[in-house]
């Protein structure tokens, strides 16, 4: 059958070895891209005519916030794969993505509130994007909590998959309702919507950094997937070999 590759992917040992290589590639590429993007963004991109230099946090904030949401969608894909093909690797992926995604959400909130201080004059406002990011963080936290509370790993994985799928259906509803709510309560001047179009010298480094952070996320996810695999397969012979080898 043409499904051989698919089953190979299901083998933890095969994945563990491959992921090690991919992880290194991701790591180096990420380092290179981030170096270029960040230096360019912080050092050479022009200052914003309204916010001056404080806007430069977008080179961290925007990619991180973007990824925090993208990782949730990736988790939903894993959940579907787990239910349809019962592939254990998808469950490992979900577990890793939840932790990494939570990390990115916290970073996005943190960088957002640092940016908020010079822009809004306060660390926290109930802005639509901040609020829905906060809710996203709680969703990630719920997944991590649920998994750690259920002893049976098989059951924990499937319970998390259900929660992820319900969450992913709800996320757009949450996002739109929060936007509506914030429009209801806040004067529009509080928002940064009507910005002039960014010049290329601003958005090119942003794009490079976005790619860079994607690779960072991939690196972290692969690394934590490998750890999870070692933990789950700790009884098997090949894990003992790996541990003795390293």
């Amino acid at each position: 059958m043409g499904w051989r590759w698919f089953h190979e992917w299901g083998s933890p040992k095969w994945f563990y070895d491959r992921a090690g290589r991919w992880q290194r590639v991701c790591g180096f590429l990420a380092l290179a891209l981030l170096l270029v993007g960040t230096l360019w963004g912080l050092g050479f991109a022009p200052a914003d005519y309204q916010q001056g230099n404080s806007y430069r946090i977008i080179y961290l904030h925007v990619p991180v916030a973007f990824l925090a949401q993208a990782l949730y969608v990736a988790m939903a894909v894993c959940a579907i794969v787990l239910f349809v093909w019962k592939m254990k690797l998808a469950d490992v992926g979900m577990q890793a993505l939840a932790v990494v995604g939570f990390g990115f959400t916290v970073l996005a909130l943190f960088s957002g509130s640092i940016w908020g201080k010079p822009t809004w004059g306060t660390y926290w406002v109930w802005d639509a994007r901040l609020t829905s990011m906060l809710i996203l963080g709680f969703l990630y936290l719920g997944l991590i909590g649920l998994r750690s509370a259920i002893k049976n790993p098989d059951l924990a994985g499937k319970a998390c998959a259900i929660l992820v799928l319900v969450g992913v259906v709800n996320l757009p509803i949450i996002k739109y309702s929060v936007e509506w709510w914030s429009a209801l309560h806040q004067p529009a001047s509080f928002k940064l919507t009507e910005k002039p179009a960014m010049p290329a010298s601003m958005w090119v480094p942003l794009l490079i950094n976005l790619l860079g952070y994607y690779l960072v996320a991939a690196y972290l996810v692969l690394a934590s997937m490998r750890t999870v695999i070692l933990d789950r397969e700790r009884g098997s012979a090949w894990v003992r070999e790996v541990i003795e080898r390293d």
């Binding site: 809710i135 709680f138 969703l139 936290l141 719920g142 997944l143 909590g145 649920l146 509370a149 259920i150 002893k151 049976n152 059951l155 924990a156 319970a159 259900i162 929660l163 319900v166 969450g167 709800n170 509803i173 949450i174 309702s177 929060v178």
Partner: peptide, 23 residues
Amino acid sequence: ALTLGTARSGILGVLVMLPLFAP
């Protein structure tokens, strides 16, 4: 239902679901 597999009853199910109540 999701937290039935946890050893003891508790508030986890509420914590997990509360963010979804936002809309």
